[in-house]
Amino acid sequence: MTAFDPVEETRRHLRQAGRSPKTANSYLSHIRRLAGRFGEKVTNLSGDDLRRYLEELVEENKSLSYINQAQSAIRFFFTKVANKPNPLPGPGVATKKVPLHGIFTREEIKAILSHVQDLKYRLALMLVYSSGLRVGETAFLRRKNVDTEKMVIHVNDRSGKQIRDTILSRTAAGMIRDYLNLRSDDSTYLFPGRGRSSYVSARTIQRAFTEALVASGIDRHSTLGWLRHSFAVHLLEDGVDRKMVQQLLGIATPSMITPYMKLARNRDPLRVQSPLDRFFP
């Protein structure tokens, strides 16, 4: 008996449905990505599983059109190929600018990071949390954009255009020095990829996060983006001004900080550092 091939079955149904070559290629690309992520259990994914998958695309800074195409491809696959009910009724997550479903506690973040065995990926996840980076921004971060003297990260897009500056933690800076001392390659990227890839893929970082989450015993449905959300909420709880948090995150619309404010329930004025302590650290 021939094994079920989700990509080839989707191709066959697209041909039968008379979809245009452009639409077919788009759908096949998304189903190939979905199948690569979930393997044999792809046809058994729940609506919640698929919504979390789409939220990861948002967190990877994929465009709205890309996410809409992914939703359409998933709906076609489940209703036409797998012959199941539509798992994504309604508008889905594509209209959500910030897929903010929750955050980690500080103790949970410490547990997650401590269960990442590979220094490369522990550092990558640490930067997502400690600097508020998106996973895509972390993946293609260049070595020259990390200033361990001024303790700042210059965040660029894939084309090399600078988007914003954000903070670099002293703990992460020390780990970066250790990590670079162990490397023998001359890649300009902080996290080089393998083979033809010039930098590590966002999906590889996602996989490292998932493995650490399971190993840490945190039994909650969460995504890697929660680390970035936690960065924002924990800064607000520590008394950092909301406009500064907005700037560090690279968020254009002030109203998008409001969900973080609602989650910052443990705001404590005693956590604010006195300016005098900056003179005598």
Rank of each mutant, 00 (worst) to 15 (best):
I163L: 15
I163D: 11
R164M: 01
D165I: 06
T166D: 11
T166M: 07
L168D: 07
S169K: 09
S169C: 06
T171G: 13
T171S: 12
T171C: 04
A172M: 08
A172P: 08
A173F: 04
G174E: 03
G174A: 02
G174V: 05
M175R: 06
I176S: 10
R177I: 14
D178A: 15
D178V: 13
L180H: 03
N181C: 07
N181K: 15
L182K: 15
S184T: 13
S184N: 13
D185N: 07
D185S: 02
D185G: 02
D185K: 04
S187Q: 01
S187F: 04
S187H: 07
T188C: 14
Y189C: 07
Y189E: 02
L190G: 07
L190W: 04
F191A: 06
P192S: 09
G193N: 00
R194T: 11
R194N: 02
G195F: 06
G195H: 10
R196V: 02
R196T: 05
R196D: 11
R196N: 13
S197C: 09
S197W: 12
S197I: 01
S197F: 08
S197R: 15
S198D: 14
Y199N: 03
V200Q: 09
V200L: 12
V200N: 08
S201G: 11
A202Q: 14
A202Y: 07
A202K: 14
A202E: 14
R203V: 06
T204R: 14
T204P: 10
T204F: 04
I205F: 06
I205D: 02
Q206S: 10
Q206I: 01
Q206M: 07
Q206D: 13
R207V: 04
R207A: 13
F209S: 11
T210N: 14
E211L: 14
E211T: 12
A212Y: 11
V214Q: 14
V214G: 10
V214M: 11
A215P: 13
A215H: 05
S216L: 03
G217L: 01
R220G: 05
R220L: 12
H221K: 15
T223S: 15
L224T: 05
G225D: 05
G225F: 02
G225H: 07
W226N: 08
L227G: 00
H229L: 02
S230D: 02
F231N: 01
F231Y: 10
F231D: 00
A232L: 01
A232P: 00
V233P: 00
H234V: 00
H234N: 05
L235P: 01
L235E: 03
L235Y: 00
L235F: 08
L236S: 04
E237M: 10
E237F: 08
